[in-house]
Amino acid sequence: MTILGLRNTWGVTGRGAALLALSGLALLLAPLVADRYLVSVLTTVLWFAYVGQAWNVMMGFSGLLSLGHALYVGLGAYASAALFIHFGIGPWAGALLAMLVAVAAGCGIGFLGFRFGVKGVHFALLTIAFAEVARVGFDHLQWLGGSGGFFLPVEAGVSDPLNLRGSPTLFYYVILALVLAALAISRLLLHSRLGYQWLAVREDAEAAEAVGVDLFHARMTAVAASSALTALGGVFQAFYFNNLFPEQVFSMGRSIEIILPAIVGGIGTLIGPILGAFILTPLGEGLTFLLEVSGLELPGLKQLFYGVALVVIVVFRPDGVWPWLASRLGLVRASGEGDER
């Protein structure tokens, strides 16, 4: 699978470390100089970086293609929102339960898929099917608002971080923290015994099994880790937007949006999903802006440009932008010089 690209995950040079640190610092200070609009764009960028990272654990690390990750976002969002609205449980505590719900769903899908030998594209179809079932199901779940939407109360001027209520800047820092945490967790996982086994399963399941890897266990843990992380993205989404519609939250389009950052940035790499999000969201926003100032009002034109841009990226950098950029700019040690993971 050429799409997987190099697994060169960390192994950064001094220059790479400096650039990453500088980027981190810039993100940390961004709300001090950015206006409201820019903060909201950056929040969106970071949200996609986060869920892209979470998806990457399944596809990038373990070779399990999920095209229904909106399911875990949606379950996380609805679970935390329901706990908040119906039981008065705050989002931080609710997040734990939301993650459990998503993990249960993920493990259910995983069990079906892995026990009955559903592989590759067929596994991907299974993940789509479950996301679609959830979309239709939640449409009819009146307890959670049904198709009319589920809303969280919005009070202007309230700052209550414990309940994840507050200014856009608060949400910006929360999602930034989530991105950094997901990055750290992904790196930790990748360097663990389990991580090595995931990579082995991704590369060649038969050979992995021959060296003692329990395929079922490896795949189930990957699904569990990915769905848990993704659910947290859903919790954030619920409390950031304050409204949830099954048609949006569980949509196929959302599932695709989730996987794009990793594909563009570099599947299986740690920085790839983050870089991908920083390419894609501004690209979309930039196109909107350009179309506005140019006065062109053709519906679908933005999507068309966006699609073309995506094709260009994927055709010319099939392994993702990060592996290419990193080696061009000397940000990572070239393979052969020793990749200290």
């Binding site: 990579l199 082995a200 590369e203 050979a207 992995a208 003692g212």
Partner: peptide, 26 residues
């Protein structure tokens, strides 16, 4: 059947992890 995208060393580390919990020992 090498694990193609992993380094040669990582390939063998995966093998060693069959009996080792610690990645460093492996």
């Amino acid at each position: 059947k090498p694990f193609g995208h992993l380094t040669v060393e990582e390939n063998v580390v995966v093998g060693a992890l069959a009996r080792e919990r610690s990645v460093e020992t492996a």
